[in-house]
């Protein structure tokens, strides 16, 4: 495989962005990332984005947002109706084809106009499950109880995850849930959706992110310390909850193996884990140990920007490598109920 690296990253996440439209708040982010590497849109070999019509309440909402890239003259471009991490994957594949050296990736989502937990019910089996409108919290809560009753995690461990997310988020200007809370304080919270407490749930946010990828020497030219993608893979589990083992994630485990997570020590992990339970599942599936700092940004629990949270995990991990805070990192992205689909990437400094 060709060496490809993340060479620029920009993001914005807020509890609600309602003054600006999607394209209005994305344009500054796009230009921030381009300016960081001194590239224009016309110098990008390929562009790929991720967003969701359902989230925006509009068909073809991405058609509005492409204008922010400045696609005049035309650009080589594609869009996935998935988290931006999959847009990055598509761009990475394009770079592997060998005829381009740079790629531009972005994704965005606004959850605040609607009720994300209810909107997500429309992802479920449309004949048997969606008509009952189980919201996303209820689905995860059932998985959580199963995990607790199977003894794979304890309520205290979930509270520890939630407490650490808050502590880490305190130093992340892009996080929206940053107030520290001790484990005991969290355990004293009333259940939001038993056995999940409010702190176990994701803090929904609006926002977006942009990443620039570059290959080989181009990456070294554009960035002092590129975050090299040493492995990247994505897999799906079954959708039918009744046939899945919800205490674990086969898809994350396979993707981690393919990406080579276990080949060496991981300094930091940015896991797309909206719930405390999701982090517990992913940590185990990836085989991460005590020597790995989990979600130094506070993770998706501290700011969950649907359609961009996964891409932001990649960006957060890359940034720490580029800054020299870490040498080897793993980032994940997820989609679907109970982490049905997972993408895993291993990033390294040189």
């Amino acid at each position: 495989m060709r060496d490809v690296a993340i060479v620029a990253f920009s993001q914005r996440q807020e509890a609600m962005i309602n003054i600006e439209s999607e394209v209005e708040f994305m344009v500054p982010l796009m230009n921030e990332a381009k300016d960081a590497v001194g590239l224009t849109q016309q110098e990008m070999g390929f562009t790929c984005s991720g967003s969701s019509d359902f989230l925006a309440g509009q068909a073809f909402s991405f058609v509005m947002t492409i204008d922010g890239t400045g696609p005049v003259p035309p650009i080589s471009e594609s869009h996935v109706e998935q988290d931006g991490a999959w847009a990055l994957y598509e761009a990475w594949v394009k770079l592997q084809c060998g005829d381009i050296d740079t790629a531009f990736v972005y994704s965005y989502g606004k959850s605040s106009p609607g009720s994300l937990r209810d909107v997500l019910a429309t992802q479920m089996d449309p004949y048997y499950v969606a008509p009952l409108w189980p919201d996303a919290f209820a689905i995860e809560a059932m998985a959580a109880r199963h995990m607790l009753e199977q003894g794979v995690v304890s309520e205290r461990q979930l509270a520890e995850i939630a407490s650490r997310s808050r502590a880490h988020a305190a130093s992340n200007p892009h996080a929206v849930r940053t107030a520290p809370k001790s484990v005991d304080e969290i355990l004293a919270e009333d259940y939001a959706m038993a056995p999940l407490r409010p702190s176990d749930l994701p803090a929904a946010s609006d926002g977006g992110a942009v990443i620039v990828l570059a290959a080989d020497d181009k990456a070294r030219e554009l960035c002092d310390r590129p975050a090299w993608i040493r492995g990247i893979d994505h897999r799906s589990d079954a959708h039918t909850l009744g046939v899945r083992d919800l205490t674990t994630s086969m898809s994350a485990r396979i993707a981690a193996e393919k990406a080579g997570v276990g080949n060496d020590k991981i300094d930091i992990a940015e896991l797309h884990a909206p719930f405390s339970t999701s982090e517990a599942v992913l940590t185990k599936a990836l085989g991460l140990g005590e020597d790995t700092v989990i979600n130094p940004s506070g993770g998706a629990q501290a700011a969950h920007t649907m359609m961009a949270s996964g891409l932001i995990r990649l960006g957060e991990a890359a940034q720490r490598i580029s800054r020299g805070d870490a040498d080897r990192a793993v980032a994940t992205a997820a989609s679907g109920p109970c982490l049905q689909q997972n993408l895993v990437a291993v990033l390294e400094g040189e």
Partner: peptide
């Protein structure tokens, strides 16, 4: 299987 979703629409700054 009827679907009903409620959003709060905001047009953006320029609009």
């Amino acid at each position: 299987t009827p679907i009903r979703m409620e959003y709060t629409y905001t047009p953006g700054r320029a609009l």
